[in-house]
């Protein structure tokens, strides 16, 4: 029997939007892949470059940040800062020979439970297509 590759994804979710949207997705009985491990943050502005890189270093196959819609950040511009940090990490991954698509930024509101599930499904599919992280391959 062939082994099915199940990637590990880390999602940094803002408590005001994406995390609440995940709650809503649950209430709506929407299913999304269990590959996604959610970390709640008070605002995506709290997510630093080092958090994303550490996730990659520790063999996460994909990492994403899910914050409020642009213009709706509870702390005015945390989500905009997070987007720039995600871009920085994408560039760093490119320099390191890792696919930058493994890191992504999403914006959604707390009312978008179905969108939360859709993002989790899309990111999991994307990472499955990319295969295991080269860091993980180096580990073995």
């Amino acid at each position: 029997m062939s082994e099915v590759y199940e990637p590990t994804l880390i999602a940094f979710c803002c408590k005001y939007c994406a995390y609440a949207a995940a709650d809503l997705a649950g209430s709506m009985r929407l299913s999304y892949p269990s590959n996604v491990k959610i970390t709640q943050v008070p605002c995506t502005g709290r997510v630093d470059i080092i958090h994303l890189l550490k996730a990659i270093e520790n063999s996460a196959d994909g990492v994403y940040v899910a914050g409020c819609m642009e213009g709706d950040c509870h702390f005015v511009s945390g989500n905009l800062k997070a987007r720039k940090r995600v871009e920085y990490v994408k560039k760093t991954l490119t320099e390191l020979g890792i696919e930058p698509e493994r890191v992504e930024m999403f914006n959604l509101s707390s009312a978008m439970g179905p969108r939360f599930a859709e993002i989790a499904i899309d990111m999991t599919d994307r990472i499955k297509k990319l295969g295991p992280s080269p860091v993980k391959r180096g580990d073995t």
Binding site: I50, L53, K54, E57, L96, I98, P134, D139
Partner: peptide, 17 residues
């Protein structure tokens, strides 16, 4: 911060290698 970022980046690169 930058020390942490560089250290982590170097470790990632060398793990891959």
């Amino acid at each position: 911060k930058e020390v942490q970022i560089l250290a982590t980046s170097l470790k990632i690169a060398r793990k891959i290698g």
